[in-house]
Design a protein around this nucleic acid. Sequence first.
RNA 1: GGCGGCAUAGCCAAGCGGUAAGGCACGGGUCUGCAACACCCUUACCACCGGUUCGAUUCCGGUUGCCGCCUCCA
Length: 465
Amino acid sequence: MSIQIYNTLTRKKEPFIPMEEGKVKMYVCGPTVYNYIHIGNARPVIVFDTVRRYLEYRGFDVNYVSNFTDIDDKIIRTANELGEEVGELTDRFINAYFEDVGALGCAKADAHPRVTEHIGDIIAFIQVLIEKGFAYEAQGDVYYRTRKFDGYGKLSHQSIDELKVGARIEESEIKENSLDFALWKSAKEGEISWESPWGHGRPGWHIECSVMAREHLGDTIDIHAGGQDLTFPHHENEIAQSEAMTGKQFARFWMHNGYINIDNEKMSKSLGNFVLVNDIRKQIDPRVLRFFILSVHYRHPVNFAQELVESAANGLDRIQTAYTNLKHRLKSSTELGDQQDIWKNKVDEAVRLFEVAMDDDFNTANGIAAIFELVKVANLYQLEKNTQTEVLNSFISAFEHLMEVLGLPFADEDLLDDEIEALIEERLTARRERNFGRSDEIRDLLKDKGIILEDTAQGTRWKRG
RNA sequence: GGCGGCAUAGCCAAGCGGUAAGGCACGGGUCUGCAACACCCUUACCACCGGUUCGAUUCCGGUUGCCGCCUCCA
């Protein structure tokens, strides 16, 4: 069974078969860098990083490209307000972006193109669109002639006429049609700008992605992804531009993730409920944030609330504990045994469940359920009097692989300080002597240092709380 | 007005024709010197009304209630 992906273009799940066997070309719309990203911005980064990881797990070679919009109105306005150069501002927030999403376990893309590095390509692209009659210059701006492109609306499943009726945009004197959108915007006095055949100006928002996707991945890409709200007009416009340019299909699969709400309300400036990743990751373990986001199917909305994140933290902890306990048990395991196949089959079954879930349009909620199945079986196995190294290792390996796909690798255990180790030893002695006063004192002392002790039949183990 | 989504236990969340996965929380028990971890047990008239079907949470129609897009937005 191949991987099934829900394609916004067809509104159906379709078997995913890349153009070139074993290779996937993937483009994800990145942020406009004029501020720290909020958790809503982080969702697609996490979700599609996970998609990429799973495709790689499945043996695909993924060429993953995600852009930075480093020139636009909001950037210019913010730079003016802060009295900062545009380039300084965008560099600053691009660095912050990498720190934020890196903390969330997102790997870097194979390429992170910036608009300002592609101005020449953009101008050339626009020129061709003009030559082909898909664009026109008007008073130093260049607009896309939406009426000219037959497929306009095929992604958002709207006809041009319906779009016009609902359009809240004001009729423009200089545009032929209110749905026409800017490919090139003439610069205002003193504004950062680039030389072009139409005078000084800068690119419009939609053209960038068409150009950068093509420069880095070619005329047709396998997967184009982004937030749901980009479906219209951004992605619709990208299709219009790219397909007018090449005459070929632009993207074969379009994936869109749902929103994040805050306490059941949409994040908005007026409500003042923006949650910046840069702030929240200092309060909440970023691994918990990622786990929380992946616990819901990517196309469904996620409600971000304190208690929900806490419950996710407890769940992640259960997985972590099972894994850590397996590692500890390794120290008291044996080489021989007779039931290894039974247990190893259970491990394989959990891994299979995980794959079935992920094959089905990256159903991470079910994938996580499969991991909990593994937790259950692992915990039961550890109730056995004798555990075998080989079986323990197959559990450990399954945990590591699956969590790696989710971008939640287990942290390496820190070594204990000699002092702490000595305290654990002293406590053991105290317990043997039934000096529970001293024993509990030591346990509390270590607890203050963030070390939690657990006594088992195989001895005392510890973890960082 | 157009397009679309969602309504499942206290909370979160899968399921998409054969009478309900998983997690969190709660309660009871086992284990423990006490804990912690773990294990066992317990918890659902699937929004409402019709229809199709031998059979529907799952399909169709309708109702109600939320939500999104149609403007910059992840």
